[in-house]
């Protein structure tokens, strides 16, 4: 009996890494059978382009989850960034983008600092920093929706959302960021350090890594990516408001976890998040095809989230589940 469960476990451990892409392909096939239009390249490309801001935010959160933490401030930072982008565009033109990214990275670094030095668990520190970001957004915007000046937007940011030979520029931006994040994680010593921390923090400390600094950088990257997501969102909608990105946090976390980066960290990565985001995108559009209306989406994603965590989490790392 014991050997049976053991070998069943082994099979499960072996299939687990392949689940995300198998799920994705199965979903695409199911939806494709239900509606052949779904499989048209045109539809696929516009689907992918729509999901880029979510993808960028999810990549940021991947850094936080990969080291065993979490970033619940991503949505608030993206909200704030849409406002900063709109306000700063009028003053600094393209420089607004740098201000946005730097602000996001700074807030992320604050989360990291509070987590590592003040010993506040990341889910609380990021909620708190999210509160700060939310206030900044409210304050800068005067609590209303702002609009970008059309000419200024055209000059500074039009390249972000254009279309070249049928290829939306968002996809190029998302692809570039994916390459950067993937490179950081798999081809640099920083990436190795992230993996070491995610796999076992105490061992990483014992082996002489400056764990605190690496964690701060990971949260800063998460903040920066959330800011880029907000920036892209602001450009797409040509404006900003302190609540415009609400509803992003849940699908972004779902994308990371469904992709196969477990809450306990150490395995998974950016490619997993790419697959996870695509799964989210396909589920979303399949809900349209199967006429599940929008109000049910949050419920569905909440339930998927629970299933995804339960399936991926590494329980050997959690002696006590609190």
């Amino acid at each position: 009996m014991a050997t049976i469960t053991k070998s069943a476990n082994l099979v499960w451990e072996k299939t687990k890494p392949h689940l995300p892409w198998v799920t994705l392909i199965t979903l695409v096939i199911i939806v494709g059978i239900a509606d052949a239009n779904f499989l048209k390249p045109q539809n696929m490309i516009s689907l992918a382009a729509d999901v880029v801001p979510l993808f960028i935010m999810a990549m940021g959160i991947t850094f936080a989850i990969y080291i065993g933490g979490i970033d619940l401030s991503a949505q608030s930072i993206a909200n704030m960034t849409t406002v900063i982008a709109t306000v700063a565009l009028a003053m600094f033109g393209i420089g607004a983008a740098f201000i946005c990214i730097l602000t996001g990275a700074a807030l992320g670094a604050v989360s990291g600092f509070v987590t590592t030095r003040l010993y506040v668990p990341s889910f609380v520190s990021t909620i708190a920093v999210g509160g700060v970001a939310y206030s900044v957004g409210q304050w800068l915007s005067g609590q209303r929706a702002l609009y970008m000046d059309a000419a200024l937007r055209e000059n500074a940011f039009a390249w972000m959302v254009g279309n070249t030979a049928g290829l939306p520029h968002e996809l190029v931006i998302g692809g570039t960021l994916l390459f950067i994040a993937w490179f950081l994680m798999t081809r640099t010593s920083f990436g190795r350090a992230l993996k070491a921390i995610g796999a076992g923090e105490l061992a990483a400390v014992a082996s002489g890594l400056n764990v605190d600094r690496i964690k701060v950088i990971a949260f800063a990257l998460s903040g920066a990516f959330a800011a880029i997501a907000g920036l892209l969102f602001a450009v797409k909608l040509s404006g900003g408001s302190p609540t415009i990105a609400n509803g992003f946090l849940l699908p972004a976390i779902v994308a990371v976890l469904v992709g196969g980066t477990p809450l306990t960290g150490g395995v998974g990565g950016m490619i997993n998040t790419l697959i996870g985001t695509l799964i989210v995108a396909v589920i979303r559009s399949s809900m349209l095809y199967f006429e599940i209306d929008a109000t049910k989406q949050q419920m569905v994603f909440g339930i998927i989230l629970i299933i995804a965590i339960a399936a991926t989490i590494d329980r050997s790392k959690l002696r006590i589940v609190k």
Binding site: M299, F301, G302, L305, A310, I313
Partner: peptide, 26 residues
């Protein structure tokens, strides 16, 4: 969900919160 599936409570309850809001909307 937290005890039987052995999921950390912050994530189990966060997910349930989303489900609840969705259900209320529904």
């Amino acid at each position: 969900i937290h005890i039987r599936l052995r999921i950390p409570s912050f994530m189990a309850s966060l997910a349930m919160g989303f489900v609840g809001t969705g259900f209320a909307l529904l």
